[in-house]
Amino acid sequence: MIQLSDIHKRFLDNVVLDGVSLEVRDGETLALLGPSGVGKSVTLKMINGLLRPDAGDVVVDGLHVQRLKRGELSELRSRIGYVFQYGALFDSDTVAENIRLGITDETCYSDDGYCADRVRECLRLVNLAPDVAEKYPAELSGGMKKRVGIARAIAGKPKYLLYDEPTSGLDPVNADVIDGLVERLRDELGVTSVVVSHDVRGSFRVADRVALLWQSKIRAVGTPEQILGSRDAAVLQFLERDLEMSLIQAESVANVRKDGS
C-alpha cells in the first residue's frame, strides 16, 4: 500500500503541494489527474524517493520513504517500476541493454541467459517485436519509446508501477495502445499502479479510482463514476476543459482522415 499524508512541497516561492493526502490500495490502479504543472509528477517522484517532501509522510509497504537509508531506498526502488514521461531511455545503450538495467536482482542481472529471456518476455508484454531489442532509442518512434520505458519498468518484476504521463505527446491511436497496455499489465502482473495524467478519457478507462489534484490540493477522490457524477466546481471545470480538448482532438483526427482520403 502507498500512503501520502499531509504532503507539503514548494520550489522557491512556488507552493506545489499543500497538504496532499492520498492512499493507493494494494492491487488497484489509481489515476492522479490534474492540469499541467499542478504537481502530479512531483507527487509521483516522492513515492519512490526521487524527491523529498518539505513536510508530511510518504509510506510505501510500511516503510517511511524519506527516513530510509541509501541501501534501503535502493531495495524499495527495486520493487517500484517507474515509467517516465518521455521514456528516459539511455541513448547510448540498445533497447535490450535498457531493459536489462531494469532487472534489479543482481544475481539475475549477472546471468546473461536469464536477461536475454527476460528482455524477450518484457518486449512481448509491451507488444514489441523481438528484433527491436538490438535497436537504439534514436531509431524508435515516440510510442515505441514509451513501450520500451514500460518494458524496462516491469523487467524487475515490481510490485508497484508508477506511470508519469504515459500517453502525453502521443496521437490518439498510440495513446489507446498505451492505455490498453496499462490495463493488460494490471491484469497479467497484478501490480499496484499510479497513473499520473491529464487525459481524462484514458484515465477513466484504466483506473479503479481517480484523484483530482487541483491548486496544490487533492480536490476529489473516487471511482470514475463518482467523479463523473461530482458537482464540485473544480471537478466540473476540469472535466469540461478535457471535453473541449477531446472535441478538438476528434476534429483534428477527422480532418487528418479527410485529407488522407
Binding site: 526521487l50 531506498l73 517516465f84 528516459a88 539511455f90 524496462r152 524487475g156
Partner: peptide, 17 residues
C-alpha cells in the same frame, strides 16, 4: 542532458547509483 531528460532519475529509480 541525462539530467534534463530524466535518465539520471531513471537510473536512481531502478535502484542503481
Amino acid at each position: 542532458t541525462m539530467r534534463v531528460t530524466e535518465q539520471i532519475d531513471a537510473l536512481e529509480s531502478l535502484g542503481r547509483s
